[in-house]
Design a protein around this nucleic acid. Structure first.
Lengths: 249, 249
DNA sequence: CGAGATGTTGACGACCCTCAAGTGCAGTGG
DNA sequence: CCACTGCACTTGAGGGTCGTCAACATCTCG
């Protein structure tokens, strides 16, 4: 019995917005269809692209979710992509991917043709698209920054808790409930992502549940005390050396 | 006795390139001076900006280096900025910083006025600048991705080794030797960044030195076996589940 | 040269990884 | 519909890694 299956409405779809901007500039609406492929279905486990493949499209997750692995082999998990998020935007200006992405569950994607986009930019037509892409890339960098911070927390409980909280925030930013969602990934994938053993992930989930901060039933997550989870991001007392309080001239 | 003091030549300076593009479009060369402040000196420990400050400038590290802390208090280290790197690019489209940056050592910065940049973009003048900013933001995201991977390595030796290797790569990409450099940060700052105890950092440095992979004398680093360090990024044998080898229709 | 910060070392204990066994869930075929 | 099978998930025991604390060494800067 599927409860919440997150699906991004097209009016909330980042690529669709871009496509609209693109489309509005061109004489006919049909141009839109040339640039964006909407609702491209994808099955669980199927690859979007492999490391080494040429960069052809931006992919927006419409429903379902994706995982990306560092390099060609699925050794270490590089990141997760939730509905509403764009896969591969940081590779936009590169020739080839240096990672591999595939679907974690059945779902659908929107594709935007990168070379088309490049042409549009060459033609100096679409300042809006440029600004949009820049803002999206910057936002992506901010999310990565958060992920690095989470991954760098000193103990496993903090990492897991902050990870769950961050996932909720990401769901929320695309219109889904922040405090109740279904984990798209396995314990093993979470573990690989965070640099932990799968057993540790399980034990920490249990520990957080024992504190009544979350409720977890296999993949279903309910966040009971978001503030407590967020507080895990702040390390305990030990401060570093103070910033010199000199006023610049 | 200062050995290598990394200084970015202005022709290698990312902001200067941007400024040149900007300058060329304007009637007089003086416009350049309005947008970019070059060689702004900064003392060790002095802040570039605090969390909550309005975003006014992009800062490029010309010489010396910077550190950034999450939030207002210097609790956890968010990242380091080496000569040739830009501080705050992922905040470019935000109102205010949500982190604090300050100088790790005496040095100098180039500043680029963000509002001026915005005006230039509004005027649809400077496609080149846009493309440059987009490429820079994407490259920054790729670097953050690497940092997340390093930070998420399962044991301390891997994290320290990969961190040293990555620092070398970053130096190299701005024209400095990759295998011989001076650490701009303390052990404690490294530790905070990687989620470790300072003592562990010291012990792992010693361990890497015992393997003849690096030589470390306080802050002076010499990388003896870069391949071995790079290999630390790859986790040991345990692979994850295979990617479904189904061909997309 | 002295004082304070930074770096280093050792002992001990907590945390987390490893290994191995067992449980539950989902998809498949009888 | 239900047993079967495979995989994900869970649990426990034991050992290695890393954090903590305290003492000491070294470096830096005035």
């Amino acid at each position: 019995m599927p409860r919440h299956i997150p699906i991004v409405l097209c009016r909330n779809c980042a690529l669709y917005k871009t496509a609209l901007v693109l489309g509005l500039e061109s004489p006919a609406q049909e141009a839109l269809h040339e640039v964006v492929i909407r609702n491209h279905p994808i099955e669980k486990g199927q690859p979007l692209f492999y490391a080494g493949d040429p960069v052809r499209h931006l992919y927006l997750v419409h429903s379902g979710s994706c995982i990306s692995y560092d390099g060609a082999e699925p050794r270490q998990v590089r990141g997760f992509h939730l509905p509403g998020e764009i896969v591969g935007i940081e590779e936009m200006d590169e020739e080839r991917y240096n990672h591999t992405a595939c679907a974690l569950e059945d779902g659908s994607l929107c594709q935007l043709d990168v070379s088309r986009l490049e042409e549009a930019l060459e033609a100096e037509e679409l300042i809006k698209v440029q600004r949009y892409l820049l803002a999206t890339a910057a936002a992506h960098a901010r999310q990565l920054q958060k992920e690095r911070l989470i991954t760098g927390l000193p103990n496993a409980e903090q990492r897991i808790g902050a990870f769950l909280y961050n996932l909720g925030q990401r769901f929320q930013s695309h219109g889904f409930p922040a405090l109740q969602y279904r984990l798209p990934m396995s314990r093993e994938e979470m573990a690989s992502y965070l640099g932990l053993a799968p057993e540790t992930v399980i034990r920490m989930l249990k520990k957080l549940a024992a504190k009544k901060w979350v409720r977890v039933r296999t993949r279903q997550v309910e966040i009971l005390d978001p503030d407590a989870l967020q507080a895990l991001l702040t390390r305990t007392p030990p401060n570093l050396t103070k910033i010199k309080s000199a006023a610049k001239n």
